[in-house]
Write a protein that binds this DNA or RNA. Structure first.
Lengths: 345, 345
DNA sequence: GGTATTTACGAAACCGGTTGCCTGTATTAT
DNA sequence: ATAATACAGGCAACCGGTTTCGTAAATACC
């Protein structure tokens, strides 16, 4: 068996007959203080021994870990791949590694994950669709970690940067589009009601109704979780309880897919009998059959953006914009009927 | 502004009038060598100051980081959520944090990610659908990191554990099912041809053909990438080049979805005109409309299993089985026509 | 009451790096 | 030729923990 060693800077130093300081200078290719030949000699030893500097040791010495933490509700949810990819791409490009954790929409678990990342001394944290309350986050700032928020926003004392879609507008647009189609009983089917986005979309839904002088029926407001499963369940519920509805807005494409799938199976035609609008415009929405009408935000870009900001604060630069909100766009496909529409309202 | 400090063990020690050693003992609740009252006093200080031990420092002291690395081709691909969730769940339950990286099916990037994880001194690495060659991985063992493989397998000198679906069997089963339906021109549409799974499935496809005394046509063998996009493209290619085909097997559900979506759009009926079988039985397959027939493996469980093994070797226990291969099951839904079938062949 | 054992804790070395400061020699300026 | 400066490189302190070992005090034992 070959030497399965992982060497230390001291060994390299000894082998080359120089001090640790010199090796360190070579590694960080610090141009000062080491001659070309010494440098070469050290580099050769490093190569020959396959020496890899210990990033952890370095981290504690310079008190910077070059790691950032990403906390999402559920990495298994098909909504998050775009986000994770956005974060890892940007982080990677700047030489940061990414630690991931699931919160399961549970404030305690979320807190646990956040603290565990502090323990690992990540330089920054990106919290996605967080469910922690404001006080906790505010208190959390004591740990001096750059904090970026996706999908939720507080004042600047809570986070260094945040980016959200305008969920109120999103909720408004989809409801308004359906209302404009003459629908009067529009079901609103949400995922986890604790997520702020849920409440905001509902607010938009309400606004669209009142703007049109229409009542909001409590029995049409459902919530459960962001999954295909739940979409199925919600469809069944609506049908089984014989609740009348002529259109649906949902809190995610997954819910929408589950509902469409189940409604179709139970003989409800879409969009002829029921129009439906999803949320988020995941990759799936356009591929699904019938293709989902949905509300679109550039999640990948949003993730990249927030990662950029977090890294900026880590590196002592200014955040470009502490709070960004992006206007969601209604994307109309096959689960709605066409009608004049200008994406403005 | 409150004190935004992160304290060190030395500070706690000083405040409590004890030595660092004592504080350390308290933190690791080492039952020996510290009296109840001293312990209490230290714990109080820790609580009051919100002290969080530096896991990095601990890692270098005990040469164990409690981090494991997960390298996948593309966290953005909808196939990986199940895997990532499986890994994070198990790791989390054992107190390990997870570092993720993308390889993009690129051996150089993969090597880079692997080495970057070594630098961070992860205790173990889980490599998913790796594209590195055997020699590289063998050489990589020098870094003394526990290594688990998903979706690829070598002898035990290369990895500590591996788990794969039997892709040959998977490829065989789906092709055989289609052949049994009387099809003679079955297109085989793969993702990245560098991934070993691709080649194995093709092998199964071949075996099924020769077993039935049928020829394999080169023009029916396509490959590109694992995405909905590519599925669309492949469908277009087949149609535009006027290549005759009466059935399709694909290397992933995403490709399948893209193809179905495009074929439908171009007026091809499924399954009446063309039968199609996906691969992997992602959450999407059953929700898609028409529901995808596909080849199923328990990815979440596989991910958990391999994580368990990796952690076992980290903790000095025996790996249960160094190499596991799971038998894939054909799941028949709406993109194929029903016919007698026993999932055995 | 004297010895043996246990217990509580501190001192200091160590893990693997970084960095400020110092020294000795080589180079340049005058 | 001499002083001034530059450069290469070593020493040692430091980052924040863990752990071995030693010792003094407390407790157990007879």
């Amino acid at each position: 068996m070959p030497d399965r060693q992982i060497h230390s800077i001291a060994e390299i130093a000894q082998i080359c007959g120089v001090s640790k300081a010199t090796v360190s200078r070579v590694i960080n290719n610090n141009p000062k203080g080491v001659s070309a030949e010494t440098r070469e000699r050290v580099l050769r030893a490093i190569r020959e021994l396959n020496y890899r500097p210990n990033a952890l040791a370095r981290s504690i010495a310079v008190s910077r870990s070059n790691m950032i933490g990403l906390v999402v509700p559920d990495v298994g949810n098909l909504f998050y791949p775009q986000i994770i990819r956005g974060v890892t791409d940007y982080a990677d490009s700047k030489g940061y590694a990414v630690l991931v954790g699931n919160s399961d929409y549970n404030p305690e678990r979320e807190a646990q994950q956040l603290l565990s990342m502090v323990d690992k001394r990540v330089d920054g944290i990106i919290l996605c669709s967080g469910v922690s309350n404001r006080d906790f986050l505010l208190d959390f700032r004591r740990y001096n970690v750059a904090l970026g928020l996706i999908g939720r926003s507080f004042d600047t004392s809570v986070s260094n940067a945040s980016i959200t879609g305008d969920n109120v507008r999103g909720g408004y647009k989809s409801a308004a589009y359906l209302i404009r189609g003459g629908h009067r009983r529009i079901a609103y089917v949400e995922g986890n009601p604790d997520v702020s986005g849920s409440r905001e979309r509902l607010e938009g839904y309400r606004q669209a109704h009142t703007a049109a002088g229409l009542p909001v029926y409590q029995e049409l407001l459902l919530s459960g979780e962001y999954s295909i499963q739940y979409g199925r369940l919600a469809a069944d519920q609506l049908l089984n309880r014989k609740i009348q509805f002529d259109a649906i807005t949902t809190g995610s494409d997954l819910i929408a897919i589950g509902m469409v799938s189940q409604l179709l199976q139970r003989g409800v035609r879409i969009p002829e009998d029921v129009e439906l609008i999803g949320f988020n415009n995941t990759e799936l929405a356009s591929a699904f059959h019938p293709a989902l009408s949905t509300v679109s935000k550039p999640h990948y870009d949003m993730a990249q953006y927030i990662t950029e900001q977090v890294i900026r604060v880590v590196e002592g630069e200014q955040v470009k914009l502490p709070h960004t909100v992006v206007e969601p766009q209604l994307v109309l496909r096959e689960t709605t009927l066409p009608r004049p529409y200008d994406n403005e309202y």
